[in-house]
């Protein structure tokens, strides 16, 4: 099962008494705020969950997997996520029925 924006809006509607449009809007804006922060060079620290940050990657050699041709992978900025201790502890305790 996976959690989606629709599920999150539904839960806000059920639990907080926001109307459906307000609930949908706040979920949308929540993620938009994180994206705006990251695209303007901020890191995002959500206590209890984790931190999102931007890392600069240098250009590196790559290969077209189909043709085997060598093509450089250009320098770029990527988003990384570091889970906080609280989230790590909660997830570690998850005794998955099967390992992935």
């Amino acid at each position: 099962m996976s959690l989606t924006k629709a599920d999150m809006a539904e839960m806000l509607y059920d639990e907080l008494g926001l109307n459906k449009r307000e609930a949908k809007e706040i979920v949308e804006q929540f993620f938009e705020e994180v994206k705006i922060a990251l695209e303007t060079g901020h890191q995002v620290k959500l206590s209890g969950f984790g931190n999102f940050m931007i890392r600069s990657k240098a250009e590196r050699p790559g290969r077209n997997p189909k043709t085997g041709e060598e093509i450089p992978i250009s320098a770029r900025k990527v988003v990384t996520f570091r889970p906080g201790q609280k989230l790590k502890t909660r997830v570690e305790a998850y005794a998955g029925s099967e390992q992935q």
């Binding site: 996976s2 959690l3 979920v27 209890g48 989230l87 909660r90 305790a93």
Partner: peptide
């Protein structure tokens, strides 16, 4: 509650998309 929903989804082995 959004942050809690996300944490508890992961804590019970669910994905978030």
């Amino acid at each position: 509650s959004l942050i809690e929903m996300m944490s508890s989804a992961l804590a019970q082995g669910d994905r978030i998309e």
